[in-house]
Structure formats: C-alpha cells, structure tokens
C-alpha cells in the first residue's frame, strides 16, 4: 500500500505562486482554523464546496522501505466524508443531546508550514500545511494530535473554498478515545 498524496514530495513547488496568493491561502486556512476552534461548524461548512472530500486515512504500520506514511483509499479510515456526511456530523455535534459537547470541547488548531502550488485545474490550488491540534475536555482530559494536511482549494465567486482535504497523522493506533473534532 502506498500513499495517494499528490504532494511534490519535499521539492519546492515547480511554479512559484504569487506571494499575494500565498498570503490569501494562509489567511483562509487561519480563519478556517479559528472557526473550528470556536466550534462555529455551520460557518465552517459554508467554506466547503458541494463536492468536497474530507479524508483522514488510518496510517498503516508495515515493514519495508519507502514512504513512511502508508495509506490507501481502499482501506478503513477515520474520516471519509462528503458534504452530506459532514453536515450530519455537524448536526450531531450541535444537537443539544451531543453529550461529548456538554461541557463543551475546547480546542486549538496551530496551522503552519503553509506551501501553495498550482493544482491540475486552473481554478484550484494545492495547499500543504501542518497542524498541531490540542483538545481539552472536562476537567483534565487533554489530547494532542499532530499531522499534515494536503488541501485542494477552489476559487469561486464567494472566494476560496475547500474542495478536498487529506489529513495524514503520525499515529497508527489513535491515542485518544474519540475524534469529536475536525482537522
């Protein structure tokens, strides 16, 4: 099994993207993170395209050399969502009987290492970033997850929108009791 990332594999982007675009993408990712930190999920949903694919595969622990993060679309995942299922997740999290959210979950996304590349489609950009996600629950539960994201952002009349997100974490066994958040 191998990753299906379209990443340029550590090489700098072949065609540099204009700095104003890089800043625009950074601003989008930072704002998006702030919405998630505040659990403003309906506003977050509005930043997604109708055909969004949100995918966080299970990272496999296998022998051999080659790419260290091993995953494949035909294997089980932590998230494998379209807009319909993401809306349902938000409906669940915002329902007054969502027991995990009462007391509310506190979270912070630290977004860094943003790189922007042209994507296959002319109206899209590929954005690489890393995240440190910290989550506090109840009196003293804390979960930290670090990972890398590969996004496809599409330029629309309303501005940039997220069309695809691949979330790649370093853990094989997820060291947390649940994932009541988005990355």
């Amino acid at each position: 099994m191998s990753g299906t990332s379209t990443s340029s594999g550590g090489r700098p982007a072949s065609e540099p993207v204009d700095w104003t675009v890089v800043l625009e993408v950074q601003q989008f990712l930072f704002s998006e993170a702030r919405l998630l930190d505040a659990c403003r999920y309906q506003e977050w949903l509005a930043l997604l395209t109708d055909d969004v694919h949100y995918w966080m595969p299970v990272i496999e622990n296998t022998l051999g050399r080659g790419a260290p993060h091993r995953f494949s679309p035909d294997r089980l995942a932590f998230f494998d969502d379209n807009l319909k299922s993401l809306r349902r997740r938000v409906d669940k999290l915002t329902n007054r009987t969502a027991w995990t959210e009462n007391p509310p979950t506190r979270q912070c996304h630290v977004i860094s290492n943003v790189e922007v590349e042209p994507a296959e489609r002319g109206d899209e950009l590929t954005a690489h970033s890393v995240f440190v996600h910290n989550r506090g629950m109840g009196e003293r539960d804390e979960f930290t997850l670090v990972g890398r994201r590969e996004d496809v952002l599409r330029r629309t009349e309303e501005g940039l929108r997220l069309a695809k997100r691949l979330v790649i974490i370093d853990q094989h066994v997820l060291l947390a009791r649940n994932l009541n958040v988005f990355f």
Partner: peptide, 24 residues
C-alpha cells in the same frame, strides 16, 4: 460500508464517540 465505518462506529463515529466517554 467502508465510509460508514468511519461515520458510525470508530473514534470519529457519530455513535461511538459518545460510548467511549461513557466507558471511560
């Protein structure tokens, strides 16, 4: 079923995320 595994009974599953808290 592959998609439902993530959506229902898994750490991010809309059902199981509440179960694991109860058990803990």
């Amino acid at each position: 079923y592959r998609q439902a595994a993530a959506f229902t009974f898994s750490p991010g599953g809309v059902f199981e995320m509440d179960d694991s808290e109860n058990w803990e």
